[in-house]
Each structure stands twice: as C-alpha cells, then as structure tokens.
Design a protein around this nucleic acid. Sequence first.
DNA 1: GCCATGGCTAGTA
DNA 2: GCCATGGCTAGTA
Length: 111
Amino acid sequence: MTLTLPSSLAPFSQRVITLLQSVPYGRVATYGAIAAAAGSPRAARQVVRLLHACSDKYQLPWHRIVNRDGEIVLSDEASRWRQARLLEAEGVSVDARGRVDLPRFGWQPPG
DNA sequence: GCCATGGCTAGTA
DNA sequence: GCCATGGCTAGTA
C-alpha cells in the first residue's frame, strides 16, 4: 500500500509520514523514536505536529503513537478514550492510567 | 506561532 | 512544573 506522497511535503515530513504508516497493527511507537528514525532525534514535537495536522489526509495510525513512557498523552479526555479503545481493539492493553507496556507492545522503527 | 515531547530539577512525603 | 527543542506554515511587509 505504497502511497506516493506529494513532493510539496518537505523531505523530513515525508520520512516521518512513511515511518508512521509502517507502524504495525497491534504495536505502538514513540514520538521520539519516529523522529530519531527520520533523522532528527530531537524533533519529537514535529512528529506531534504532523500527526495533528495530517492523520486524516494520509490515514496515519495516530492511535499507535505514545510518549516515551508508553503513555497516551492527548489533551482532551474524549480523544484519550478513543485512542485507548482503538489500541485495545488491536489487542494492545491499556492500563487504568492510560499506559501501554512498551517492552511488550513497543515497535522500533528501522534505521 | 504551532504542537499529542522530553529531560531536567525542585519540592513534597 | 519548567523550558529548550525543531521543522514547518500562516500571515505580514
């Protein structure tokens, strides 16, 4: 399901989006790991921005991205609840504090 | 100026 | 709880 990304998108953003699309079903990745694999270890916030802005357009598995502690960190409660439900529907258990067990479900991007 | 981070320290218990 | 971080975009000149 190789989707050609528009060249109007900056190279870093293209790499981030491609990496996000490769996070497997039933696994999670962290903002920082995606940023690092895209070549900019401190650009985790840029991953955040892209997820926020482009999830719909590029069908990104936004729910599979958590922070470095495995926590769901969305700002509003309804979205946090939705993310937890989407993860559990894939077999990823989320505890009462909205945390995923990274050693068990974490996925490391290549590179 | 945005943004759903991350790494640090201070301040409690 | 603070604040430096970073790639990008919107909006002004």
